[in-house]
Design a protein around this nucleic acid. Sequence first.
DNA 1: GAATCCGAGGGTTTATGCCG
DNA 2: CGGCATAAACCCTCGGATTC
Length: 375
Amino acid sequence: MAKRTFGSVDRLPSGRYRARYVGPDGRRHAKVFNAKADAWAWLASQQTDLLRKSWRAPNAVHRTVGEYADDYLARNDLRESTRILYAGLWRHHLREAWADVPVDEVTPAAVRSWHSKASRTSGPTALAQSYRLLRAILNVAVADEVISSNPCRLRGAGTPKASRPSRALTAAEALQLAEQLGRDRRTERYRALLLVLAFGGLRFGEATALRRSDALAGGRVRIERSVRRVGGRWVVGEPKTDAGQRTVTLPAAVAAVLEEHLEKHVLSSPDALLFSTSSGGYLARSNWNSTFRRAAHATGLPAVRPHELRHTGATLAAATGATTKELMRRLGHSSPAAALIYQHAADDRDADIARALDAMLGAITEARDGNERPQ
DNA sequence: GAATCCGAGGGTTTATGCCG
DNA sequence: CGGCATAAACCCTCGGATTC
């Protein structure tokens, strides 16, 4: 049942009348009048403003984009990594242009001209992300009803162009890289890591969080955590869902290399890192990247990225005919979307399926001809 | 002493998850 | 499905250590 009146009017001890209502900002607004009718009239006018979307919270109109940004970044429901990312976007791409502009003076034209100017100095992704951040910040002002609509209306400006897809290395290329790493005694300790990434399909952060005690018998590796760097500090995370926690079995040849690696490069303590820097700390991605790149260059492989090793692991697993569920488990995915990509990548299998169908059809034909079905 | 590599830092870009 | 949040990867740079 709908409320019959908007707001309420009550009588104060002084004998005057006070009109009150709860605004879209969740706060209660009030004004005192001498006459009861004036109080109701004021309520009616506020309601009209609300319906016309022209209602403005008192004192909020003149807040600047910078003030809204500060609030936005201070929200406690942002993860630290996101806050760091957004703070960087704000500092590098938005602050100079927008910090001192009152939110109600941000026009679509101003946004457009900022965007076209910024497109000359920012990369496409940074531009799209900072545009989205600006839009998100101003959306708070819209929610506050300080402005009636968001001036960020550039079509498609929030979605950067997709980059080129990454390719998976072949098993042979991965082995070639491993050999290359083994040639130099300085990079030899990276060889096992490369093989584990390529044939186990582990995420880099999962591999570098592995400890001696996670290497189980039978070439199995237990993945229970991952490590990443947030704002210059190492953060070891336990996966929130069960999907990330899993045990991956490595091919025997890789397991053998890992055994050797354990003897030569890993301290004896059960919690010694399996793949660490020479000083025993977590392996930084940038260092692994450059080592990887040098090896790739030395073997004459076309441009490859370290992450493509994971694609290798995934694609090879898919090519063995693993089901979506099996792939998800091995890769630690919580949704099938990613695993499906690899299954498509393993489309070579289609020919095998066709051959198998041929065999079945042949068998049926033979049976119809009265022959025994060959077993 | 120059060349090369390692390790670290920080900004940028991509991938994935989640939710309405 | 799109927007947003977040995780993860990429990329560049630089100082100091190591090797040649």
